[in-house]
Amino acid sequence: MRRCLFPPVRPPLPRATAVVICATAVIATPAAAQVDLSGYWQRIRHEWEQPQGGPEIGDYSLYPLNEEALSRSHAYDPAIEEVQQQRQCWPHSIGYAMFSLAPMHIRHEENSIHFRVMANEAIRTVWMDGRPHPPEHALHTWYGFSTGAWEGDTLVVTTTHVKEGHVRRNGVPHSDLMTVTEYFTRHGEDLLTMVMVFDDPIYMTEPLVRHMTFRYDPDATMPEYPCEERELVELGGAQLIPHFLPGENPFLEGANVDFFSGEEVNVGEELRR
């Protein structure tokens, strides 16, 4: 059986294997740390919470997407997750992974800070020793390459070299040229805020800013996230990639009604064809 690293966006299934790893929160304070962020942090509820199970298809009206991103998003057919062997159990990239429902664990190391934001072995390293980012031709990964620095009491993390992924779990893409800047600030004993700025020259008209707040939770543990590769739905062989032709996505009808104006946005005539 194989397990994957998706954040548990829905309560575990009865038939899914839900194993809880008993982890001990080791709280150490190395000299390098400006502010101690170590330990388990449990996310709190936010005003932007989406329906349990993820956003609706076609719902990205408040995202700063250009026509390229809209074309990709409109073409997105969730069936692609069902039929493609290689995509099954892919993790979320940094474009989405930090918004996991699972707790986040932070550990200060000698010259780095480690974040565990999803289950199992997915550890994100933020280098604090001033090393440069890799050259352009280096490998890109799901979490990218991160360096950090303290600006006052705020940890500022810069991430490049991320694989193409999504910023919303309904097909809204980010490119592999995206740069992410994160600001982590601890407020007293209990609260930690994270502001993420996604700057993507390929798919966004302006930087996308998202935020999240965590509450310190020394009793938290990191749940193992079960994911198994499933039987493939046979839809016609390896050359069939589920997608909707421009203007023919049946899920888009009525989507993207602007909350303020009531007008339909992001599904303009030019994209319906």
Partner: peptide, 26 residues
């Protein structure tokens, strides 16, 4: 498809689990 004002929801796009029997084709 989801109609404005209807109570029905469009499908979410969560990946789903399946039985372990499907494993191993790699």
């Amino acid at each position: 498809r989801h109609l404005p004002g209807s109570a029905s929801r469009k499908p979410c796009v969560a990946r789903r689990n399946s039985s372990a029997a499907s494993c191993g084709f790699r």
